[in-house]
Design a protein around this nucleic acid. Structure first.
Lengths: 204, 204
DNA sequence: AGCTTTCGCTACGACTCGTAGCGTAATGCC
DNA sequence: GGCATTACGCTACGAGTCGTAGCGAAAGCT
């Protein structure tokens, strides 16, 4: 949200129900209208609140959509499927499912586009989406190490984690949204094989 | 362009100079204003033409920006650096340079975002960008085969070409625009190693 | 020449923008 | 309970953009 209710603040507090209604209305409007035709006035009407209530909490369309998008990405989890390979395939398919949702794909690309010339929005995107989802890579690595599938870290794992994250997320996004081809079980299997074999051979 | 001059058509032909001026003005406006603040009226003013002239050739902002974007992507070539590994690193760095240009990054993401809910625009994107750039992968493979670095095709190479294209383009785009980290020589080297070793081990 | 099409220009109604002002509702503090 | 404070819904506003229409003039094909 744009502003948490300051602790010990006098006066009527912001309605949490209004926050939720606005975010839900934003996701709904993204599906029906897409980014460019989405208006904050329309979102307010759908949410059953006044337009001014939306503007009191978010400074603009970009910020609102970013927060609505974050609620969608937080659906992602890393189910334990028993092996590194199966875990990666699982997260690839799960991410692809998320990108199949019209609200997700429209919002993600539009926010990234706006962020290219808006430093504050870039920061928001990093905090609420990138940093939160990178946890999946960290967790997957940790699990694979505890299973003995990959060696424990000897050097700083940061760069490798970044590389893996960009390759997985980038490839899935690109195939789904730019090439407009489906990410099915076969593609996920072939992609995972290339990634894991490449990491094993190249040594990170 | 939106409409080629029909052959053997009577009357005054469309000005090719106006086409070029409009596309150049669009690239310029994308840099300064980004997608959401770019208006066709402003583009017309910058190009030194009337607003109606723009609307006669392109049906909307998305189509115009897509064509302006295609002129930027057509800068990409595949220099022969002597080995598959060097060729891939070269194209990765070249693509990263292209995405450093403000006009490219803003336009690419915005067009993809609009394309998620516009089938005609998706088609235009595939024709003018995706299909044209996939040639780089095809050419790189052909060269590597003629050098004997990889075996000649036994099965249909189509799926592998698609996979390679999405992994390369996706990873570079994601690192540059979503993670907002630079694609330098070190990253390109590590990425290329993972990709090529993975393809060699996984066998496509 | 004569015909056809494009060009620049102006104007138009419709829409969205983000903000301001009002009276009312809901809460914390005393 | 009463009061100060803040959020809320509503209405209205000027500014800006949208995409289109109509006009006379310019430019090129046959």
């Amino acid at each position: 949200m744009q502003s948490h209710t300051p602790a010990g603040r006098a006066g009527r507090p912001r309605s949490a129900a209004a926050d939720a209604a606005i975010l839900a209305a934003t996701r709904e409007a993204l599906v029906e209208l897409g980014w460019s035709k989405l208006t904050l006035g329309d979102v307010a009407t759908r949410a059953g609140v006044a337009k001014t209530t939306v503007y009191r909490r978010w400074t603009g369309k970009s910020e609102l959509v970013t927060d609505a998008l974050a609620t969608l990405f937080d659906q992602l989890v890393l189910p334990d499927r028993g092996s590194l390979r199966a875990d990666v395939e699982g997260v690839v398919l799960q991410f692809a499912d998320l990108l199949e949702q019209p609200a997700t794909k429209t919002a993600l690309m539009a926010v990234v586009a706006e962020a290219t010339h808006d430093e504050a929005l870039r920061q928001r995107l990093r905090e609420k989406i990138v940093a939160r989802q990178k946890r999946l890579v960290v967790e997957g690595r940790r699990r694979a190490q505890s299973r003995g599938e990959i060696p424990a870290d000897v050097t700083d794992p940061g760069p490798q984690i970044d590389l893996i994250f960009d390759v997985i997320a980038g490839a899935v996004v690109h195939r789904t949204l730019v090439s407009c081809e489906p990410v099915d079980a076969d593609w996920a299997s072939r992609f995972t094989a290339v990634l894991l074999d490449g990491l094993a051979a190249a040594g990170g």
